[in-house]
Design a protein around this nucleic acid. Structure first.
Lengths: 230, 230
DNA sequence: CGCCGGATTGAACGGGTGTTTAATGTGTTG
DNA sequence: CAACACATTAAACACCCGTTCAATCCGGCG
């Protein structure tokens, strides 16, 4: 049960059929959304709808397999290039490699749909960003926060959500641009404003922040996290 | 053609049936997503699926009507409270009024799905934010930017996308919390980190920004927008 | 060889979809 | 009252969906 579905035919001149189906599924799911029919995926893989069920049990099973594959690819590539912090930059550099574009598109779809994978991805991004920001703080290049966990979550949600929304709006609207080109345009569009905001903020003084800190008595709920202020 | 579909029965003790259908549609679309069946919407409105078609022509027509209604409500409420700038804050205060919660939920769904309404909403938010940020700049409370349009777009996408993603992940996951409570939790969660970021930035110095400005020759494409720097 | 097990297919099933159509009710008007 | 227009319904239609099933192909093995 634990090691089910492996090494049945094994040897084959071309890729295994199950892998071909999975690739086609990631491609179709990513491009058309999760409501695509099994038959559409099957024809894209050059097989029949029944065979997809035969290999993956059900459509839900196929999605689960896609999720695992995408997550595995993401994790593997992440260890290769563990710098860069922001998820957007990371996914951008990943999308540069044409081979991984379908996976990235699938991940964006998953984030848009908001299922289990979305939550896993977000939590993972938050964990990564936590470590990255903490390192930056320790190195003295990132300002400390009154509530580091909240800031990390905020930054992860904003960056990821902004990216997903941008692709939801611009993704299908524009012409026959390749996914790579689209991603490059997105990064170009946000880099300057993001750097400005991160480097200089948006407001000229701290009055709004101070007003809020005075208005709200407790930082989150514990006692001494406020020592990081100023 | 221009004034089609108005004043047919007009007088009625309770609300018009078409309005009841539309309210139910916004409710169901917002809660269950746009793939809900017409019959589900119809039963929620206490009518039959055929009647929905009879009044709105098709499911697409119903969605168009929902879009227009939601957009109209949003515009009307916006003029009532034109302060507060950020779209999140605005929608939060709108969601406070129980009556408007379904519309807000519908708008979130639309932004998540990314159709025409999503683009309209985003562009409108950008326009509003443009005016708001310009006013703040003129009043001396908001820092000028090297590329004001790009910054406005960036802020609008980040704020809106972050909110949509947060609700995609937390929306159905948690228990029987009311939409109001959920929105309050979101605002509570982001207010401090957002104010911190806007007031103090994230990085301790400008080296990353300066590196980027040196690496990239032209600001966007025109000539003198860089005078706003420093 | 003969059998067997898995890969693969094509057709069928049951259910859900959006939409159409004919019939029924119902209030307004001549 | 008769006639018409409209709201409303229930049933039917055609289609797509995920899934099942029986049959077929095919390679490995006793």
């Amino acid at each position: 049960m634990a090691s089910a579905g492996v090494v049945p035919g094994e040897r084959d001149g071309d890729v295994l059929t199950a892998d071909r189906i999975l690739d086609a599924a990631i491609e179709r799911f990513g491009c058309d959304g999760f409501h695509v029919g099994l038959r559409s995926i099957a024809t894209a893989a050059g097989v029949t709808a029944g065979l997809v069920i035969h290999h993956f049990g059900s459509k839900a099973g196929l999605r689960r397999a896609c999720d695992e594959h995408a997550l595995a690819v993401m994790r593997e590539q992440k260890t290769k290039a563990l710098t860069d912090g922001t998820a957007a930059m990371f996914m951008a550099q990943l999308a540069e490699v044409e081979q991984f574009a379908p996976v990235v598109r699938y991940l964006l779809r998953s984030l848009q749909a908001g299922g289990d994978l979305a939550m896993t991805l977000i939590e993972q991004m938050i964990t990564d960003a936590e470590a990255y920001l903490a390192a930056g703080e320790a190195a003295g290049v990132i300002r400390p926060s009154r509530d580091r966990a909240a800031r990390t979550r905020y930054l992860a949600y904003q960056a990821t959500g902004g990216m997903v929304l941008w692709f939801s709006v611009h993704g299908a609207a524009v012409g026959p641009e390749s996914f790579r080109t689209l991603f490059r345009r997105y990064v170009e569009e946000i880099t300057l404003p993001a750097l400005e905001l991160f480097s200089q903020g948006l407001l000229v003084d701290r009055s709004m922040l101070d007003d809020y800190l005075m208005y709200v008595p407790d930082p989150p709920s514990d006692g001494d996290a406020a020592t990081a202020a100023r």
